[in-house]
């Protein structure tokens, strides 16, 4: 299969705009602006008019406009992938992205219509990062390195396997994402999120150290492992600052304060990058480091995953 540069770049662009959308959404929550536009799908009764962007409306309506743009990008990406990519599973991945963005839009609407119920708002936050991961994966699967290069294979003979550790990392990160969202949306106290942060730190550090100590010769594994480790350290620091500004110092604040907004939004953004990087690492480990003999799949039957 030939590398399609335009398709790949478009996928990267869609992922970048989705990342911006996650930041815009985090700004809405941190500024308590989620209900500043009281109607949906219209904004102050109109589908197309841009309201006066002051106060909370500035955050909420900007979030809605970027979301609409991401919706359009997702339609283009799904259609383009369907037409240009010969891999059947990629066609379905494009459609999955489109389905997720539609579901995400509906969840966003429900948060407005039902006045930000914690369960729906948290689902909206979790689905946002799920969608981001899917678009990042589309960008990864359309990259030249994935499409044209023959993967270097090394068997994994250790227990648990690196791939299992990657899956465990994604699991604890997802739990962390939901706990964090529930705290931000007043559905839970802060301590489950802080407690699970220890589990996240241990599991991700274990995964990164295993990847770097045994498979640093594989670029496709080393790079995301290093990125994951760096993002983990940054995320733990940001989490600590966010805790100080929101819980320790800001619990009596009469309005969202700038340090709290900045640290919390950065915490959400880096969290999204960390999840996407971990998912990318898992995919690269699955491709480059198959489970060795003695586990379920004999190595002879395990063929390298090519384009």
């Amino acid at each position: 299969m030939p590398y399609n540069r335009a398709h790949h770049r478009f996928a990267v662009f869609a992922a970048a705009v989705t990342f911006l959308l996650i930041i815009a959404g985090a700004l809405v929550t941190s500024n308590d602006a989620g209900l500043s536009v009281p109607d949906w799908p219209t904004s102050f009764g109109s589908l197309y008019k841009i309201p006066h962007l002051v106060g909370g409306v500035k955050f909420e309506h900007t979030h809605r406009m970027i979301a609409q743009f991401v919706g359009v990008l997702s339609i283009i990406l799904a259609v383009w992938t369907w037409r240009a990519d010969p891999r059947r599973w990629m066609k379905y991945l494009g459609l999955t992205a489109l389905g997720l963005v539609v579901a995400q839009g509906i969840l966003g609407g429900l948060t407005v219509l039902f006045y930000l119920p914690p369960a729906v708002s948290s689902a909206h936050a979790a689905l946002a990062q799920t969608f981001f991961c899917v678009v990042v994966l589309i960008a990864l699967f359309t990259a030249r390195s994935w499409v044209e290069e023959t993967p270097r294979i090394e068997n994994d003979e250790r227990h648990p396997s690196l791939f299992t550790l990657c899956l465990l990392s994604i699991f604890v990160l997802y739990v962390q994402l939901i706990l964090g969202a529930m705290f931000r949306h007043h559905g839970l106290s802060w301590w489950p999120h802080v407690l699970n942060a220890a589990a996240v730190a241990i599991v991700l550090a274990w995964t990164a150290i295993r990847a770097l100590s045994r498979y640093s010769g594989i670029d496709a594994v080393r790079r995301p492992a290093i990125t994951m480790l760096a993002l983990l350290i940054a995320q733990l620091c940001l989490g600590f600052v966010a805790f100080l500004t929101r819980v320790a110092w800001g619990h009596d604040a009469v309005q969202p304060e700038f340090p709290m907004v900045v640290s919390t939004v950065a915490h959400v953004a880096v969290g999204a990058l960390l999840l996407a990087t971990t998912v990318a690492l898992a995919v690269q480990v699955w491709r480059h480091i198959p489970v060795a003999v003695g586990e379920h799949i004999p190595s002879r039957e395990r063929k390298p995953v090519a384009a």
């Binding site: 500024n31 308590d32 602006a33 002051v54 909370g56 009469v254």
Partner: peptide, 8 residues
């Protein structure tokens, strides 16, 4: 008021 978060 969600437009002016200090308004309570």
């Amino acid at each position: 008021c969600n437009q002016h978060p200090w308004m309570k």
